[in-house]
Amino acid sequence: MNQFQYVRASKPKAAIEALARDPNAQFIAGGTNLLDLMKRGVMAPQKLIDINKLPLDKIERQEGNIRIGALALNGAVAEDKLVLEKLPLLAQALNAGASAQLRNMATVGGNMLQRTRCPYFYDTAMPCNKREPGTGCGALEGYNRMHAIFGFSDKCIAVHPSDMSVALAALDATVLVSGPKGDRRIPFAELHRLPGDQPHIDTTLGAGELITAVEVPDNAFTRHVHYLKVRERASYAFALVSVAAALQLDGSTIKDARLAMGGVAHKPWRLADAEKTLVGKPATDETFRQAAEVAMRGAKAFQHNAYKLKLGPNSIVQALKNAAAA
């Protein structure tokens, strides 16, 4: 790990100004991803601005939504009464991620901003356009078992590793940010970018912007929800494929649906077309299979991840089945 200056921020404004002033500075909250990357020489900020003392960890009910502070810990959110009652899909997704220890460290804001787990990104001796633009994509013709089937470019086929973000994408969350130019709201679907020609840029956050909270609008997805995560061991592993499924049922008819996937793209992958095919249909395996087929349109695999073309739709069907049965 390189040497760096370390400062603690007690006010958001000071944190934002400090970050805006110094292009080599980074916020540190939980640190579970940043320190990991710094130890391996993948990231080397020259200043860390510790934002853990900022008063941004409240989880509160507001008019029309639930607001979760950016510094609320993943474990605290997953166990929060309000979240369990109103946003059970989010709680499930959080509990599917990492370990109890890491969930006690990682923050909501940090979880959104975690970097890809692509092995080429992590190894400074191999090419990676995300880590070092212009060096090429090691995964494109390499070991791409964990990689994207949607929305990739010839510069990068990495996937976003967050589980929480898949649920937030499904639930139409909004990200609140403060920056040098003031506050703004980012629809969750617009927070993360596709790699395109600039895979080194993960999100649409501007210089010096600080995520302060995420708001999840009131919804009726409080019962028929399921977060399914398929991985290579029973727990504590990143997803091969994950699915956030939420249904609103009227008897056995689907009144409304939300569906998003993880482990398939550079960002949480919302499946709006598949949701549309679900609405008004009976909650049957046949309906779920049709939705899964729609969901997979446009998917394309590489040498080692063709299994996702089948695991993806299968997981969608299973997640919807579990949601309907919940």
Partner: peptide
Amino acid sequence: ALTEAAVIDDRFGRYVTKDLAEYHVPVHAD
């Protein structure tokens, strides 16, 4: 049987499974 494999990218002759997040040893839940 189920989880462990160390994989090399033969182009570089370098492991792409480099830690315990990529090389899966069984956990309690397994």
